[in-house]
Write a protein that binds this DNA or RNA. Structure first.
Length: 497
RNA sequence: UCCCCGAUAGCUCAAUGGUAGAGCAACCGGCUGUUAACCGGUUUGUUGUAGGUUCGAAUCCUACUCGGGGAGCCA
């Protein structure tokens, strides 16, 4: 009974030490006769030798020896590696069950951790009992002991977390999220929660998903138009595309804040770098200018990458070996280097003088193309690059206008392979300039009365940026397609699972 | 949304107008402190869907669906 096992495990005190143990803390210094419930990552440590343990997980593969025993590779998701379980033929269910354990079946193993006499693993578990919990019919179980394409794994999104790659992605993604929170929390930022459902329909960041409870077959009409006054919120509402404006509200009260949650874009984008639902981190800081913003973005990325390197070493070595040979070395290089900072104008000059042939021409005043950004970050500097001070006509209304009147205090952080990973700016804090900019971009200032109030009452310079979580996971792991770094990707035409 | 490429066994792929195959997996047997185990044997098909051309179509044509690469938009 799982509940009994749980109680017994709790009484041995492993829960109190488990977390420390996992991250390099001490393993209990006694080889007790009491059964301890361990994860595979714990049982694989040499310090676990001599402990009586219970392990629970899924069979990855089985190898039988006519010498009278079987090797069962057990994985429980706690780490990339499996624990090798030795099942001898004197086990009562050896013939009936263990010899038929197939890939994907779930088992509970009790036994003693021993030093492994063979190469390939530090420890192994000599089973005293193996309880079959759930079978997985090998004729029908889709996951095999071989490499699958990511396209195929996407069609079995409910089973792909059991694959090595997706398990590693999930652990690294979790590490990145923990690191994000730690970074901000340690620096006195408050995590704020802007609404998912918003009434702002023109935040300037692309097409939005409509939220409505009206019957699409027969919506209430008023003068030929849909009457949203009869909708749930008595007005048109949408899924948020960004929590930035709300974050500004809290930054102008609490100083330093960040949002971290899902955002939505209804763009018909079919690329390996876009999702309709993705997670975004948006810090916003009062009294920060663009230089402070760039400093923070750089320190932030270095912290996250550094944490992944130290906390996900096994997974990162897997990505290096199987997915992207430069995955680890790229991160190591970044943690110990300085990001290259370059104004938009300097970047345009550099591109024009490079003599490089581009499909699209480079000209001051137009947005840089993917090929231009890639050339700068991959060919010229071979490291993250921060571009700043973009032409005002290609950037959003809320970005602070420079004294030259031609550029705004915007910044993009570009990284190799992925491109733009962070976009941010210093915000326009001058009421008259902001209103003029809104009219220039044909936005109605009255719809943003609350946003303008922040400039009317105790306005302060402030700045912030947005980081795409999935692009960060992509960059860190080297995974080529963004659909393979989020559990259940949403893209045009696809909302399975 | 645009351009290019693709869809064949459970999976990865061959077969370029003339009888649909291999590797892996699965199953059976052998061997082994093994470790992507190894060796031998067996089973597996509405060739993405719908039309068309042809004596004959996996193969050529059209439309659609899905996937990949690139572009635009962006995180």
């Amino acid at each position: 009974m799982p509940s009994q096992v749980w109680l017994r495990a709790a009484s041995t005190g492993w829960r109190a030490t488990g977390v420390l143990w996992r991250w390099g803390g001490a393993i209990p210094d006694r080889a007790s006769n009491t059964m301890e419930m361990l994860s595979v990552v714990q049982a694989r440590q040499a310090e676990a030798v001599g402990h009586k343990v219970e392990l629970r997980g899924w069979v990855r593969t089985r190898r039988d020896s006519k010498g009278g025993f079987s090797f069962v590779e057990l994985n429980d998701g706690s780490c990339l590696g499996n624990i090798q379980v030795i099942a001898e033929k004197n086990l009562p269910n050896y013939e009936s069950e263990i010899l038929h354990l197939s890939v994907g079946s779930s088992v509970i193993v009790r036994g003693e951790v021993r030093a492994s006499p063979a190469k390939g693993q530090a420890t192994e578990v000599l089973a005293e009992t193996i309880t079959l919990v759930g079978t997985a019919d090998p004729e029908n179980y889709p996951l095999q002991k071989k490499q699958h394409t990511f396209e195929f794994l996407r069609t079995i999104a409910h089973l792909r977390p059991r694959s090595n790659t997706f398990g590693a992605v999930t652990r690294v993604r979790n590490c990145i999220c923990r690191s994000i929170h730690n970074f901000f929390q340690e620096r006195g930022f408050f995590w704020v929660h802007p609404p998912i459902i918003t009434a702002s329909d023109c935040e300037g960041a692309g097409q939005m998903f409509r939220v409505s409870t009206l019957d699409p077959a027969k919506p209430p009409l008023k003068e030929g138009q849909i009457d949203y006054s009869q909708d749930f919120f008595a007005r048109p509402t949408f899924l948020t595309v960004s929590g930035q404006l709300e974050a500004e509200i809290f930054a102008c009260s609490l100083g330093k804040v960040y949002t971290f949650g899902p955002t939505f874009r209804a763009e018909n984008s079919n690329t390996s770098r876009h999702l309709a639902e993705f997670w975004m981190v948006e810090p916003e800081m009062a009294f920060f200018d663009l230089n402070d913003n760039m400093d923070l973005a750089e320190a932030f990325l270095k912290r996250v990458f550094g944490d992944v390197l130290t906390q996900c070493d096994e997974d990162m070595r897997f990505f290096e070996q199987r997915i992207e040979p430069s995955a680890r070395t790229t991160l190591e290089g970044i943690v110990n280097s300085e990001f290259r900072r370059l104004s938009y104008t300097e970047a345009v000059d550099l591109l024009i003088k490079s003599g490089q042939k581009f499909e699209f021409p480079v000209a001051w005043g137009t947005d840089l193309q993917s090929e231009h950004e890639r050339y700068i970050t991959e060919q010229v500097f071979k490291c993250p690059v921060i571009l700043y001070d973009y032409p005002r006509q290609i950037k959003a209304f809320y970005m602070r206008v420079n004294d030259d009147d031609r550029t705004v205090r915007a910044m993009d952080v570009l990284v190799p392979r992925v491109g733009e990973i962070i976009g941010g700016s210093q915000r326009e804090e001058r009421l008259d300039v902001l209103e003029a900019r809104m009219r220039e971009m044909h936005l109605d200032p009255t719809a943003y009365w609350w946003y303008l109030d922040l400039r009317r009452f105790g306005t302060v310079p402030h700045a912030g940026f947005g980081l795409g979580l999935e692009r960060t996971v992509q960059f860190v792991t080297g995974m080529a397609n963004i659909r393979d770094v989020i559990p259940f990707p949403r893209t045009p035409g696809i909302a399975d699972f």
